[in-house]
């Protein structure tokens, strides 16, 4: 791959990543689009270059590699679908909060700060331990144990 094309893909990836790390959903979407453009640049440049791959339009050896093209074709359409879905999220965010900013998840923050022990598993463990320890505590032989209802 030529240095120019490699540099183009790399720059698109870099710019896309920079936008991806923002909080505004619309910038994230633009970043994702740039990322997918970068990936497409990589793909179409990965195969050999040549005339368009149509049977009968020339020698097979002169044709551009058709496989990356098929991959990119689906990638273009899929990234459109992704963009649509994310824009719908931005739209929804606007409906609810007047903005498309992605705030921190409050629940996650709580866990991160204080710890949030899920007690169920430990309780069951303690119970299992208690059951097996209780069996050890033997009463004297003549002594009638309390009847547990």
């Amino acid at each position: 791959m030529s240095y120019v094309m490699a540099g183009t893909a790399a720059t698109l990836f870099g710019l896309g990543t920079y936008l991806l790390l923002q909080r505004k959903l619309s910038r994230i979407i633009i970043g994702l689009s740039l990322l997918s453009h970068g990936a497409n640049v990589l793909f179409v440049n990965s195969g050999r270059s040549g005339v368009a791959p149509f049977v009968g339009k020339g020698d097979a050896a002169d044709m551009a590699d058709p496989i990356p093209q098929a991959l990119v074709l689906t990638a273009i359409v899929i990234s459109f679908a992704t963009t649509t879905l994310l824009l719908a999220l931005a739209y929804r965010s606007w409906l609810l909060t007047d903005d498309d900013e992605v705030d921190d998840d409050v629940e996650d923050r709580v866990i991160g700060r204080h710890g949030h022990l899920d007690t169920e598993v430990s309780d069951e463990a303690a119970l299992a331990a208690a059951v097996s320890v209780a069996a050890e505590e033997e009463l004297p032989d003549g002594h009638e144990p309390e009847v547990v209802p």
């Binding site: 998840d105 996650d108 991160g112 949030h116 463990a125 331990a129 097996s132």
Partner: peptide, 26 residues
Amino acid sequence: AATGYAAALRALNRTADRVTGVVQNG
């Protein structure tokens, strides 16, 4: 066996919690 099992489960739970706290910071 009994206390070992309970302690192991508790430790596992606490570790999972710590890891979640660090990794899932929201």
